[in-house]
Computed example of a mutant assay.
Amino acid sequence: MKRFFPGLMMAAFLAVSGANAADEIAFVDLQEVFKRFYKTELAQDQIRQQADDIKMEREEIEAEVKVMKEEIEVLRSDSRDSTLSAEVRQNKRDQLEEKLVDLQKKEKDMADFEKLRMQQMEQQNTRMTKKLFDEIHEAIIGLAKAEGYDAVVDRSAQSRIGTDTVLYSVPRLDITAQVLAVLNEGREKTQVDQPQFEVEKKEGE
């Protein structure tokens, strides 16, 4: 009869239990999931559309500013034209002062507008990103419960100094592809329905 020494039996037990415990932990590349989740692309399209709208609106204001500057230059020139009467030159100077005040206000409005719209876009992006990660999180939890995993670790996480938190993981324990399959399962239907994230409107719209 074979005899087992206590130390060897304990080592064998730890090896077996350790292997089982390792199989209960899965790994996922959260950044890859976020990037390849089809709703991420839809959200990014909306953000790009907002950025294009902001650019177009800014260009319209810049065109108005350009016209005002051209008018100011004409008034400045006329106010110094010695061929005109003193009364006319004074009238031109008065108009010039008014235009300069209007220009200053328009330029301030343009700066305030751009700042506000950029803040709105950043807030929109933050909300949409959180909503996407919440949905991804729910999918990971559902898959982990269905597959019997005790924990799922994000292998794309990094430390404060920029190094990978997870230095190595067995490929067979990586469930990134499975998570993406769950998230992208309804892609065709969603593309037809085109549910959109709520987009903030500008003031006055």
Results as ranks from 00 to 15, higher is better:
R3S: 11
F4L: 14
P6C: 14
M9Q: 15
M9L: 15
M9P: 15
M10Y: 07
A11H: 04
A12R: 09
A15S: 13
A15Y: 12
S17I: 03
G18R: 06
A19Y: 14
A21F: 15
D23M: 12
D23C: 11
E24L: 10
E24R: 12
A26V: 00
F27E: 04
L30A: 04
F34P: 01
R36V: 07
L42R: 14
Q44T: 08
Q46G: 09
Q50V: 05
A51N: 12
D52L: 12
D53E: 11
E57A: 07
E60W: 01
A63C: 06
A63R: 09
E64S: 06
K66C: 10
V67F: 09
M68F: 11
E70H: 03
E70R: 13
E70S: 15
I72K: 00
L75S: 03
R76L: 06
R80C: 06
R80P: 01
S82P: 12
T83L: 08
S85C: 00
A86C: 03
A86G: 10
E87M: 08
R89G: 01
N91D: 07
R93D: 02
R93Q: 05
D94W: 10
E97T: 04
E98Q: 12
K99D: 02
V101F: 05
V101C: 00
D102C: 10
E107S: 08
E107C: 05
E107Q: 09
K108G: 09
D109Y: 08
K115H: 12
L116I: 06
M118Y: 10
Q119G: 06
M121G: 01
Q124F: 11
N125L: 13
R127G: 06
M128T: 01
M128C: 00
M128F: 13
K130G: 11
L132F: 03
D134P: 00
E135H: 04
I136S: 03
I141N: 15
I141H: 14
I141S: 12
A144G: 02
A144D: 00
A146S: 14
Y149T: 03
A151R: 09
A151I: 04
R155Q: 10
R155E: 02
S156Y: 01
Q158T: 12
Q158C: 14
Q158E: 12
R160P: 15
R160H: 15
I161L: 15
P171C: 07
R172P: 10
L173C: 05
D174A: 00
T176H: 03
A177S: 11
A181K: 09
E185P: 08
R187D: 07
R187F: 01
E188N: 01
E188T: 05
Q194G: 06
E198P: 11
K201I: 00
G204S: 07
